[in-house]
Each structure stands twice: as structure tokens, then as C-alpha cells.
Design a protein around this nucleic acid. Structure first.
Lengths: 202, 202
DNA sequence: CAAATGACAAAATCTGTTTTTTGTCATTAC
DNA sequence: GTAATGACAAAAAACAGATTTTGTCATTTG
């Protein structure tokens, strides 16, 4: 493990130590000095790789969001019917968030914080998700799967209806609810969404 | 005004002074001592009327929630078709919250706090709203307006779909969005809800 | 010259102390 | 006997000084 760690480029190593530290102790008890100590380097050197503590923390968040985003891209690039894609995208996001919330609550907290404050990582992630959904909607409109043609109304509608299952703070507020229950409810909401998008009038 | 204030029963007077203090300075800068001073009495006497500061603060919240609740009861007791009632209830709640958020942000904050922590006031208020919605749904199911008959699925579905427009923290998160825009979007969500409840399968 | 150090200023956090606040109650006032 | 006081203990908040942390940079190292 020590070998694996030191074989990685310095920036990745710092990133992983930072993630581990936050995972264990939470952001509030994480300092650049402590991370540098764990990496056996002066804290000043950390700043050669990350311009600020905030940037480092955001990089930790980005780290786990990236694979989610590429998963979404795969769904989007697939051959399925528009609504199936839409449903799979939304479910995948919901599930990924919930997984992280359960597995690494402290790291999920970083994402919530970034979302609420509208920080770069969160904004970019949201834009990517939005872009995928938009692409699928436009696809579905072109193919006739979605008779309504006003993307400027359909897009917000999708996010408004799914808000509870997709919005980071709302997701955390539901931790106590059983996973199965949430998923059942989200399924029904998605069914409602399907019916709505399948009709001509929004 | 001074005359009006002193003509009211002591508990109401304290309540109003507390509300005014919080409205102006926020909860964090509000003390029982300061409220007592404004009421020209010893702080110990405040505790004759409210068992704790928390109880007093919750009473302030309850104060503005009560008229909303009675408004909902009126809608619910009215003669309109089930979905019209449902829509009017949900819109009324949304509008009332948004109004308070804009008019008295600090007081709305008390409500958010109480909601997030699941305090009595918030829980009771939520249960009342839920009871009204449930009544309207059952009404609509009985009258055939809502073909689906599983209230245990319909009720969460309504709140899930409307979450963004009804959930206190989500409402605050949208302060920056123009009122008209939010209302337009909520209208479309309600339209989707109508269609869903109007179909046999949930 | 790319990687890292260590010294530094400004800002934030911690720590121990004083003050205020919360909540109780025996006593007073009417 | 209901309304209010004022004194009190425990808890919380405010404060001030010491310490740590953040972020920069001139210098060192390989």
C-alpha cells in the first residue's frame, strides 16, 4: 500500500490522502498541514499542486463525481428509447448519490456544501447532468417519443419533479428512510414523468 | 400602538415582542432577557407564560402557521372538485411560504430550523397539511375523480412530486429565482400531477 | 529546472476566563 | 391567589491572548 501510494504521481497521492483524511475525520478536522504531514512533505509543497485548500477539497469531490458523469455519458450514448435513457440517467444519479451518502457521508457532505454554495465543482456537475438530460429530451422530441416540443419547459419540469431524489440536501434529509422505500417512490414519480412527457401538452 | 400592546393579554404581548425582536435581529441575537426588558418585566416572569425559550420561539412560528392551516381547512371544506381543491391547497401553501420567506426571512428561518430538526410545531403542521391532502385524495377517489385507489401510494406521490415547492429548505434555496418563474413551473408540475392522478395506474 | 523546503504575514482556530443567559424558585405585591 | 420579582446555579456566549493554519515566496536540493 505504501508502495502503491508512492508510485502514484504526487498530486494524486495528495488527493487520496486528503480524501482519506476527510473520510475519517470530516472536513472541519482536516488541515493542509496534516495532509502534508501524512504525505511526508512540507505543507507549502501541497500548494504546488493545488492552489488552495478549497481547490483541493473540490478536487476530492470531483474525484467521485467524474465516474458518475462518465456513466451518464454511456447511458446517453446508448441505443435505448429516449424515455428509458432518461429514466436510467435519473435513477443512476439517485443511486450514486445515495450510495455515496451511505458509504462516505463526510465526502458527500463536501458535495452538499458545494451545491448549496454554488461552487464550481457542483455547478459544473449539475450542468453536465443537465446537458445529458437535455440531449435525451431533444432526442426524444425528434424521434416523436415526446410529443411536447418546448425544451425550455420540459427540462425544468424533469428536474422539478425529481427534485427530492436528485437534490443533494434533500437526499441527505432522507437518509433515515429505507432505501427500498425511496426507490419505490422514485419509480412511481418516474412513471408519472413518463406519462407527462408522453402527452402533448406540458 | 403602545396602548394596543398593553391591552392584550400578557402572553400575546410577549409573543409579539418576541416575533418583532426576531424579525429585526434574527434568532441568534434574541434573548429572553431582552424580550422581557422590552415588555418591562423581569425575565423570570416570561417563564410563567412560556416554559422555555424554545417553546416561545415555536409559538412565534405557530403564530403564522395557524392562519395558513385554517385557510387550508376552508379550501378542503369547500364544494370544488377534488383536484381543484388539491391544487388550491398546494398552491396556497407554496404561496404562503414564499410570502413569508420574502416578508420575514428571519421568521421563516425558524420554520426551516423546526422542519429540519423535526420539532413539534413543524411536525404538527406537516401532519395537518398531510391530513388535508389525504382527505381530498380520498374524496377524489370516492367520487371517481382519481381512478387509482391506493392512498398509501398516492399521498407520498403528491408530496414527492411537489417537494421542491413545498419543502421549507428547498423554498429558501430558490429565493433568488423570480416568483413568477417558480409559479409557472409549479403550475406545470401540478398539471403533471393532475394527469397522473387522473389515470388508473400509479 | 522541476520538486521541495522553510520562513513568514495574515487569518482562523483554540483555550482558558469573564460575562451573559437560561431556567428555577422562594418571596413579595396586589 | 394570580402576577410579578429578584436572587440564584448551571449552561452558553463573549472575549482576549496564545497557537495553528492558510497561503506566498525566496531559497535550496537533486
Amino acid at each position: 500500500m505504501a508502495r502503491a501510494a508512492s508510485s502514484e504521481p504526487t498530486d494524486v497521492r495528495i488527493l487520496e490522502l486528503a480524501a482519506e483524511h476527510i473520510r475519517r475525520h470530516g472536513l472541519e478536522r482536516t488541515t493542509v498541514v496534516a495532509i502534508a504531514r501524512e504525505a511526508a512533505m512540507s505543507h507549502g509543497n501541497v500548494y504546488r499542486y493545488f492552489p488552495s485548500k478549497e481547490a483541493l477539497v473540490d478536487a476530492v469531490t470531483d474525484q467521485w463525481l467524474k465516474p458518475i458523469e462518465s456513466g451518464l455519458r454511456d447511458i446517453c450514448d446508448g441505443p435505448d428509447p429516449a424515455f428509458d435513457k432518461l429514466e436510467r440517467i435519473l435513477s443512476a444519479v439517485q443511486r450514486a448519490y445515495r450510495n455515496k451518502l451511505e458509504a462516505d457521508p463526510r465526502i458527500f457532505d463536501l458535495f452538499i456544501e458545494a451545491s448549496v454554495l454554488g461552487r464550481g465543482v457542483a455547478r459544473k456537475h449539475r450542468l453536465k447532468l443537465q446537458a445529458e438530460v437535455r440531449a435525451v429530451l431533444e432526442d426524444g422530441m425528434a424521434s416523436g417519443a415526446f410529443p411536447a416540443h418546448d425544451i425550455r419547459r420540459a427540462l425544468p419540469l424533469v428536474f422539478d419533479i425529481c427534485h427530492r431524489f436528485i437534490n443533494p440536501p434533500s437526499i441527505r434529509a432522507d437518509v433515515e428512510l429505507a432505501r427500498a422505500q425511496i426507490e419505490g417512490r422514485f419509480e412511481r414519480v418516474l412513471r408519472a414523468l413518463r406519462r407527462t412527457l408522453g402527452s402533448a401538452v406540458l
